[in-house]
Computed example of a mutant assay.
Amino acid sequence: MQTVHTIADLRALLSGRGRPAFVPTMGNLHEGHLGLVRQARALGDVTVASIFVNRLQFLPHEDFDSYPRTLQRDADLLRGEGCDVLFAPREADLYPEPQTFTVQPDPRLADMLEGHFRPGFFTGVCTVVLKLLSCVFAGSPGVAVFGAKDYQQLMVVRAMARQFALPVQIACGQTCRAADGLALSSRNGYLSEAERAQAVQLFAALRSLAQGALAPGADLPALEQHALAALRAQGWQPDYLTVRQRSDLQAPRNPQAGQLVALGAARLGNTRLIDNLEF
């Protein structure tokens, strides 16, 4: 595996090597990330991963400064998975001047759920993703793999790639879970031992919500409020637990199995976790 830090070096390294398959990450890698790399290897001629903690997608009170940075460990893990190229730009490499041009995603998709509780988040995501895609796919079209755990993010990135006619297929990697069902996340490392044992309650709440949503005559708003109250009673601070249409993340008018997704975000102690369940 070759590691590069500048855009010019990345483009030179990828020139003439065929179809890239790309996995963008913020590092502190876990099995979920490595699964995306394995998926990418089968989809292209050269496998590229990036590690960059993107300041633009963190709110002022969030954990940008304390976000775990484990570059050497991450590089070793990527090398073990057969990744060909690691792009690890410094902030000055990716943003050599203030990033005054930004991507404003469709508010109908991006201003709800995560975008409501983290205003500006998807502007930061889209801006850095567009820039990373332009770095990796300057010479050849290819595929980029994003995890399904960040469900709304995946939909926003797909819409951006489609509307800008980017030469990139956006592929979905399924959520990787621990044996007890907890979705793997870099932020799981913030959990205390007691909180880690509790953390499975978020996915359990989504399963319960999904089951209730398919019952005849289900009252979705009432079910959502009950799910929120139940999670609060267990010591969580939930932002949302909701059922939406997979197609556009709008509230379903006529809930039907196979077309829905339950999404949730909640804080346990100082750690904010997100998860989802298609059903």
Rank of each mutant, 00 (worst) to 15 (best):
T175L: 06
R17M: 09
P60V: 14
E193S: 08
A178Q: 08
A251M: 04
M1R: 03
V23D: 05
R73E: 00
D239M: 11
A12G: 09
A21Q: 14
D111N: 11
I51S: 02
L133E: 02
L166P: 02
F87I: 03
A40K: 13
L109P: 00
R246D: 03
G139H: 04
D45A: 14
V37Q: 06
A110V: 07
V46K: 08
F122L: 05
A197T: 09
G27I: 01
L268Q: 04
D63A: 15
T6P: 08
P89E: 08
V200T: 05
V103C: 00
A165W: 05
G120K: 10
F22T: 15
G147Y: 10
A266D: 05
L13W: 02
D74N: 07
D45K: 15
Q104A: 10
A88K: 01
L132A: 07
L191A: 12
G142V: 04
A266Y: 03
Q245K: 12
D74K: 01
A266Q: 06
D111M: 12
L223W: 08
L94R: 03
A92E: 13
D248W: 10
D106R: 05
T47M: 13
N54G: 09
G44S: 15
D180I: 05
Q152D: 05
L231N: 07
R19L: 11
L214I: 09
L166I: 07
A266G: 15
G16Y: 10
A251I: 04
K149A: 13
E91A: 10
A218G: 01
L10G: 08
A88G: 03
M160P: 00
D76W: 02
Q250N: 14
L14F: 10
T70F: 01
R187N: 14
Q174G: 15
L154D: 11
G189M: 04
D74S: 03
A218D: 00
L34M: 06
G269I: 13
F121G: 00
C126T: 02
S66M: 09
I170V: 14
R118Q: 06
V157K: 01
A75C: 08
D9W: 02
A229P: 07
E114W: 01
R246E: 05
P119Y: 06
Q259W: 03
G258K: 08
S140H: 12
G147H: 09
R79F: 03
V23K: 06
K149F: 12
Q72D: 07
R90T: 04
L268M: 14
V103Q: 01
L14V: 13
D180R: 07
V200S: 03
P89Y: 05
L220V: 12
N276S: 07
P60D: 13
G35W: 06
A262S: 14
G120Y: 07
A179T: 04
A75I: 10
A229C: 12
A159M: 02
G142C: 04
H5I: 06
L113Q: 02
I274T: 04
S208G: 14
E62G: 15
P238L: 11
D9Y: 02
K149G: 12
H61L: 14
Q174L: 08
Q225N: 00
F146A: 08
N270Q: 15
D219E: 04
M155C: 15
A92H: 12
R118A: 05
T100A: 12
R207Q: 15
Y240W: 07
G18I: 11
Q198E: 10
T3N: 04
N188T: 11
A165H: 13
T242D: 01
A194L: 08
P255L: 03
I51V: 13
V261I: 10
A8C: 09
F64H: 14
G27L: 00
